[in-house]
Write a protein that binds this DNA or RNA. Structure first.
Lengths: 328, 328
DNA sequence: TTGAAAGCGGTACCAT
DNA sequence: ATGGTACCGCTTTCAA
């Protein structure tokens, strides 16, 4: 069943059928009615490829995500996809992993599929070399970055003020009289850098010196973090609170503390389900995916309909206090 | 840059360019070489829509998933997507939620996009009414179900023997002298049913009567499960071990036990990252997504190239013991 | 081995 | 308001 058949059955031309299909106002109600009835009867579905060829769009958005199996990114993908459906966009999912070469390859791949736009979720795009590719891509279609920042024409960023979130955490710990705060992080994506700088900000504001021995990079793995923190507890510099760039990392640290029979404030990041799973419940910074994601898609919607939108949208975080917050 | 331009630049016809594009053997090495060089020079990319229109395929697979924000499904989607890329298929992601109406709507949507196949991940398709839609869909494209079972022509299932997994868990608990085992579950998808039946199997084998008061349905939410289990501990039937259909549920139960100062064997399901996050570490059944997902895509690969494949592939699970396993 | 040309199923412009 | 028709860019059959 194609548009020609429908045209024949309805006794009109394919042009008219196409108009009905596209809700063109210039079709008489009677004609529209008739054509629609035939479509219904024949349970006609327009061919998406033919449509794509003509319009140069299949109403698809490319989702470039480092890793959907990660709880945080999975949530972001879920929220984005749900919001995209509202505008009847389809989501083409592309998981890149952390290799920059793959990331650019997949970006290329999405463009070759003529997606209407690309949304970056947790991408590590950060170095200039990669940004060159992003810049190129952004010339072809709008690029929206969730919780990342690349200031380039055609690239729009929606992000959470994580730097300030960490700064405030430091501040509140200092307020409890804790000055030696261990900061654990894994990768230095844009987001990763912001958090670390927030940690430094917090200390600097209180006139405290930087403590490089308390800023420790760890792999994103519970047992490895646990062991690393255990080692620190044994031989390392002393500390009496822990901030982590990720819930998972915080949980690894929590395990080390438990094994050592110690208690101290531990604050994670992302407010993921993992934070709820931990015992004691992990206090965590919520970076507001529930807001970021719909906002990002909303932006895209406007962009694609030609409306102007800000290149950068920043929202603030929210601390979710659970059992690991206070000292003693 | 289209195929005509490339043809012109190479001094051949578009047919020849097309042949080169599709690795047709009937092109002389010299011609092929020449055309390829031009393509390279012009950094030509064939138009995916035009290709789709001609071939009636854009080399896309529809992923029908109830909820990617769920840790378990996210992992499945991740593994499937990764494996699909190997065969250079793209993944069109569709999150349906649990409403059967939506599920059939999205299935329809994927079909209208002419995906080459559909992979169901954690779908609740179970009732006959829905199966009618599946049957219809399976007439158009192959349907592969991961960890679910629907026996219909054109539907292929790859699943884990979860029934047996639970049976064995019951068995081993009975062996430890525990006869009163609380079974917690949330939804009765195919998988959900199998697990529950496994629980019954285990008890039946030991000649124990069914204990409906120990088979409790709970919502998939840590605090709600915690409260439900706390209530059972207070006023309910006695039990001295807990089996759950999901890690998340097991963790809720664990929290209730901790609050009550109690310890008993608790076994979760899925061996998700959540199990590692819990303290004490949650013993959990691994239902082998790492095997199921690649197997499912491998099946699809064969199907799409016309090779025959079994309609049902079952693999066995693996118990991952952590701290919550043994009594005392 | 190569080329010409007829689809594939729509969109959109130009007439009427 | 409606119809005719030239695209869109590729695949594939048929002839040469």
């Amino acid at each position: 069943m194609n548009i020609y058949d429908i045209a024949a059955c309805s006794g009109v031309s394919i042009a008219t059928v196409s108009r009905v299909l596209n809700n063109s106002p210039s079709v008489s109600p009677k004609t529209r009615e008739k054509v629609l009835r035939v479509m219904q009867q024949e349970s006609y579905t327009p061919n998406a490829f033919a449509r794509g060829l003509g319009l140069n769009s299949m109403h698809m958005i490319g989702l470039l995500c480092t890793d959907v199996s990660d709880t945080y990114y999975a949530k972001a993908v879920s929220l984005v996809e749900k919001r995209l459906r509202k505008d009847s966009y389809d989501a083409l999912l592309c998981c890149t992993g952390n290799d920059p070469t793959d990331q650019k390859k997949f970006l290329q791949l999405l463009l070759s599929k003529h997606v209407d736009a690309v949304i970056l979720i947790g991408s590590a795009f950060k170095e200039d070399a990669q940004n060159a590719y992003l810049a190129q891509a952004a010339k072809e279609v709008p690029v929206v970055i969730i919780n990342g920042l690349v200031e380039l024409p055609g690239v729009y960023c929606v992000l959470c003020d994580e730097r300030n979130a960490v700064r405030q955490n430091v501040h509140s710990l200092l307020h409890q009289g804790i000055t030696r705060i261990l900061y654990l992080y894994d990768v230095l994506t844009y987001s990763g850098c912001q958090k670390r700088v927030g940690y430094q900000d917090g200390l600097a504001e209180a006139g405290l010196p930087e403590m490089p021995e308390l800023t420790v990079q760890v792999p994103k793995s519970i047992p490895e973090v646990r062991d690393a923190v255990a080692a620190l507890l044994k031989d390392g510099p002393s500390f009496s609170a822990i901030l982590a760039s990720e819930d998972l990392i915080a949980i690894g640290a929590l395990k080390a503390l438990q094994n050592a029979g110690l208690q101290m404030p531990v604050i994670g990041f992302n407010n993921s389900i993992l934070a709820q799973c931990a015992s004691p419940g992990l206090t965590s910074v919520d970076n507001m995916l529930e807001i970021l994601c719909p906002t990002a898609v909303g932006l895209l919607e406007k962009l694609l309909s030609g409306e102007p939108v800000p290149q950068k949208t920043v929202i603030s975080s929210r601390l979710v206090e659970r059992e690991t917050f206070h000292a003693n």
